[in-house]
Design a protein around this nucleic acid. Structure first.
Lengths: 350, 350
DNA sequence: CTGAAAGCGCTAACAC
DNA sequence: GTGTTAGCGCTTTCAG
């Protein structure tokens, strides 16, 4: 068996290329990094040598001197189960991945299983493995922002961080959908359809998206009956539970705005069980326009769509933007937020 | 604004720790790397200095000399849509992530969007960013094995690679479920339940898992009617289509073994449409025991379970195993395969 | 425009 | 046991 193949470390170095091309290491380096300011015929010579030897720059050596890794961490709190199975995350990650790839940056996936993992995360971020970090919709007590701040890691959050209202990290940036505006639109739509007793199934209020959607609901329905709001948890089962609660408390309700599609489908099931027609007796609006959930619901769900993949791309772009030109140390001027628009998608449920 | 926070590169080095502790860099290095062979009181001194300075080893520098990155690439062909939304992959990735974390190794996610991406992948693997790679159920014409071989990257595949039968990479290792054995068990179960005309909905035959399951079916039903086998594509829709075909060709069939749960549910839907009772008229067995699919099917699916998360862990363990002790260059003796057992889970459908 | 030389921060022989 | 000394492969002044 050809041991050669498996032996690492015998890859050609700059030195070898330089020798073959008959130039200095510096010149090869220049060519490899764009080749400005090198005479054309030397560039060719070097390029040939590179090809012939199959030279690929050693990443560690480069990072050691440039202090840039060309990698970004994507930190995902795995306990929040959904993550991978939730199309929301997969699409956001796809967006991130696309943008990073386009910018020749690698994606290092950091799954956080439990609280203790944060030590590991901190060491990792501090170890200079990555140039920046992308993190997701955190609960208000998530230790991550504090860690990012402590190790001075440029970080962009997906979803408005809970602590933006408090002290938090002044340098933090985030990308979020216009949850509040979207919620307002949903409720206004319900009112426009003649609904008068519009209930809300809220998400877990330790997540800002849930809070913002509830706020949007309240913006439109100022001073409405508090009994028309039930707490859910963004799951189908939670939505069903909340729907039952609502029907018990206010049997006369004629519309429900659920803070996400999963809960809306849960509500749909309960309404069907009770023999209530949707949208005849009760109109239902969801949020997210989750692939395969909203459309496949029975009846298909009217819902508020957010461009999840676009948000992912934006997160990456924002982060790479703050990283700036290689080597340039740049302090972001202020907390930056990008709020992406939502759009109401009308289907059969409302 | 405190620029300090954002300025990289002013992190303390070994040198600084050594100075503060009053020892040499070598000693600090030893302590940081386990601390054997250093007198206890020096260890303490160094540890204190490390803490005081908040020292974290520079990863690039370490990699440069040790030639180990402490990272592993997970390569995912994203065109095969399913990936993230498919619980199969998410669970496998979770298994991988768990094992890697336990071994203090990072997971670099490489999503492959299209054919052209393979250049990028090759450069990445060749660049020494990672110590090894994990890849998934490839189609027979996938360029990845060739790339891995060319750059000498230790790689473990999830699912038997199609080219194992051909030349391929002799060093390749893979972890796969006992697809063939599981299929046999499924069919035997059907026979034991008195079924005589057992059809099969096959997966796409450019994937070895589909081939192996078909082979298992044929092992038991030697020389059976070829019209009892229909081609599917591992999707629900494909399963439905195949079921219709089968019913048209052989209306008298009394059992179906589908190569995965998704196709089985597609078949279930068609059977229901046709007013056929499951399992009364037609018994159905799936494969995978996919979370939320098999159990939630109507009727709940009898199916062949594979331990997906365990397979993920195994992949990681196998890879890390071949990487061996840091520094030790080790040529794996031969192609290694780990076949994990399957178990038939009996529910209502057969 | 190109080359020589000085490190980046760390580990690993090899001396003491 | 501990310190000294070489580099790992690359970029980047600084001369020429």
């Amino acid at each position: 068996m050809p041991e050669q193949l498996r032996v690492p470390g015998n890859r050609p170095t700059l030195e070898a290329v330089a020798a073959l091309a008959g130039v200095s290491r510096a010149t090869v380096s220049r060519v490899v990094n764009g080749g400005d300011g090198v005479r054309a015929h030397l560039v060719d010579k070097v390029r040939d040598a590179v090809r012939e030897l199959g030279y690929v720059p050693n990443h560690a050596a480069r990072t050691l001197v440039t202090r840039r890794t060309g990698a970004v961490a994507v930190i995902i709190p795995e306990p929040e189960v959904r993550i991978f199975s939730d199309p929301f995350f997969s699409r956001q990650i796809r967006g991130i991945s696309r943008e990073l790839t386009a910018q020749d940056t690698q994606l290092v996936l950091l799954l956080v299983e439990d609280r203790g993992d944060y030590d590991r995360i901190e060491r990792y971020l501090a170890g200079g493995h990555v140039d920046g970090a992308l993190a997701f919709s955190l609960h208000t007590d998530d230790p991550l922002p504090e860690i990012a701040r402590r190790v001075g890691m440029p970080t962009v959050y997906g979803g408005r961080p809970g602590w933006t209202t408090g002290p938090g990290d002044p340098c933090a940036a985030y990308v979020d959908a216009d949850n509040r505006g979207g919620a307002r639109e949903a409720v206004r739509h319900l009112l426009a359809r003649g609904r008068r007793r519009v209930a809300h199934i809220a998400g877990p209020l330790d997540q800002t998206s849930a809070v913002d959607r509830l706020d949007g609901y309240r913006d439109v329905l100022v001073g409405s009956d508090p009994a028309l709001v039930a707490a859910g948890d963004f799951t189908t089962a939670g939505g069903a539970r909340a729907m039952r609660e609502l029907l018990e408390r206010r049997p006369g309700l004629d519309a429900v705005f659920a803070a996400n599609d999963l809960m809306a489908t849960g509500a749909l099931t309960v309404l069907r069980e009770r023999g209530l027609d949707v949208p005849g007796d009760v109109a239902v609006v969801g949020f997210d326009d989750t692939e395969r959930v909203a459309e496949a619901a029975d009846p298909p769900l009217t819902t508020v769509r957010q461009d999840v993949e676009g948000m992912g791309r934006l997160m990456a772009r924002l982060l790479l933007g703050t990283l700036g030109t290689p080597g340039a140390v740049e302090v972001p001027p202020a907390p930056r937020a990008v709020i992406t628009p939502t759009v109401l998608v009308r289907r059969a449920s409302a």
